[in-house]
Nucleic acid binder design. Structure first.
Length: 414
RNA sequence: GGAGAGAUGCCCGAGCGGUCAAAGGGAGCAGACUGUAAAUCUGCCGGCUAAGGCCUACGGAGGUUCAAACCCUCCUCUCUCCA
């Protein structure tokens, strides 16, 4: 351990920790140099990552970079969590979707609060600075900005893969979208960032930050790229819109179940990017899976426990596992299912199955309910329902099961 | 500014006056099989209805027609080429 006043660990120790799970560090030499200098001066590095203000629903994919930020933080460096509120207030037209709604100042601030409540599950709230990029962009002279824009060419912008692909496909790209990377790059100038953290899809933007810092005579930041976490579908990167995500605020049971549904080949990636398991622990798992000695399910269960524990608690992880096993392996009814109160027809005490399903929220329309019954997916108290016109006597509480996932207890209202 | 092409369901994409709730694929949901997953097979995949049927939908607004996703007019948006 070094004896400097802030107590940074030695550079090689820091590097070893930071390298774990990283996809690319541009460049390692720069990072090492910066760490060495920081150690010498006892001055923490400034680590920045930008976030879109409109989607404050964080998932394990976001957590990959945020967890890396947390490592930097644990090493004593300064974390700046930058909210791109300026972007949000302008209205980003990215992608083929309609122009995103502009956010008002109030919405941005409300979203920021939501961010905080989530991100501080990972980062230390006392040591994290939250900044907004409107702080400098809103007041910035347009001439300065045009000057910046003038230093870049369209061809350089088209180096970026997704732009090029969209361009070649004949899809629209707005001028604004060309300007965003420049604004993001300027954020690094304004913050004098030493390191910018991002997913691999951010490579272009982070590299642009290096360039622009150079234009402003600053020491160029290190572009720290983490791999993109593949979603539970095993195909696309984890994202909310593809609904293949595990939210860091998901309930323990959901979190556990979602992780169990990932394809086996992602187990090691998830251990590496989403848990605190050290490198040697991970290589053991890798060997187990390769040799086929151990059912991958067991490692996946451990993975699911680790993740749940990270965002909830060890107890929650245990109970989530218990519920999962009862429900999916033993095909029986777990003990923590939701209870829903339903009112049957007064005198007869009967209720149509379809109404039951609709009122319990198991389906969103009677048509859907009918299809479920026709598909053979509905049980009431272990009794298979085959006729969608069937009525159920609701005198005491019953168990309604629609598919594997939707199980609830129906309580008759007196 | 000029010339052309296009906008279809969650996405891609066929349809080009009635047989269209709209082919096909993907995604999704359910069933079988499993380890929970993957792979595979099967079914479903706008709403209401017991059923016949009704309603809502093919960028927007009008129009022609017994009848329009399909024809006409205007508008909005996108792409390509020329300047």
């Amino acid at each position: 351990m070094s004896a400097n006043k802030i107590g940074f660990p030695p550079v090689n120790e820091q590097m070893d920790l930071l390298r774990h799970g990283a996809l690319e560090i541009i460049s390692e030499e720069d990072l090492e140099r910066k760490l060495t200098l920081s150690l010498k001066l006892g001055k923490p590095l400034i680590i920045k990552q930008g976030f879109d203000p409109s989607a404050p629903d964080l998932h394990l994919g976001h957590a990959v970079t945020i967890r890396k930020l947390a490592q930097f933080q644990s090493l004593g460096h300064r974390i700046i969590f930058l909210i791109g509120d300026f972007t949000g207030m302008v209205g980003d037209p990215s992608g083929r979707s309609k122009t995103r709604p502009r956010l008002t100042r109030e919405e941005v601030l409300a979203n920021a609060e939501t961010y905080k409540s989530q991100v501080f599950k990972i980062l230390n709230s006392k040591k994290t600075e939250i900044r907004f990029n409107s702080e400098w962009h809103a007041s910035r002279d347009i001439y300065q900005f045009l000057d910046l824009a003038g230093r870049f060419t369209v061809a350089r912008m088209l180096e970026r893969d997704d732009f090029l692909i969209r361009y070649q496909k004949g899809e629209p790209i707005s001028i604004l979208e060309f300007l965003y990377p420049l604004m993001q790059a300027y954020d690094s100038v304004a913050l004098q960032a030493d390191v910018e953290m991002g997913g691999s899809d951010q490579k272009f933007n982070l590299l642009l930050g290096r360039k622009i810092q150079g234009e402003y005579s600053q020491d160029a930041q290190v572009a720290f790229l983490m791999p993109l976490l593949i979603g539970t579908d095993g195909k696309e990167k984890m994202s909310k819109s593809l609904n293949n995500y595990v939210g860091i605020c998901d309930f323990p049971d959901d979190m556990y179940g979602k992780i169990m549904s990932i394809p086996d080949r992602l187990i090691v990636d998830y251990f590496t990017l989403a848990t605190d398991l050290p490198v040697d622990g991970i290589s053991v798992i890798l060997n187990d899976i390769k040799s086929g000695q151990i059912n991958p399910m067991q490692h996946k269960q451990r993975l699911a426990r680790e993740v749940v524990q990270l965002y909830h608690s060890a107890e929650a992880a245990q109970s989530a596992e218990h519920h999962f096993v009862t429900r999916f392996r033993d095909h029986s009814v777990p003990d923590n299912i939701p209870e829903i109160t339903v009112t049957p027809t007064p005198i007869t005490g009967l209720i149509a199955v379809l109404d039951l399903m609709l009122q319990s929220g198991a389906v969103t329309s009677r048509g859907e309910g009918r299809r479920m019954i026709e598909a053979g997916a509905v049980w009431v108290d272990e009794r298979h329902i085959s006729d969608f016109r069937q009525e159920i006597l609701l005198s005491s509480s019953i168990i309604l099961k629609v598919g594997k996932r939707k199980i609830c207890r129906i309580i008759p209202e007196a």
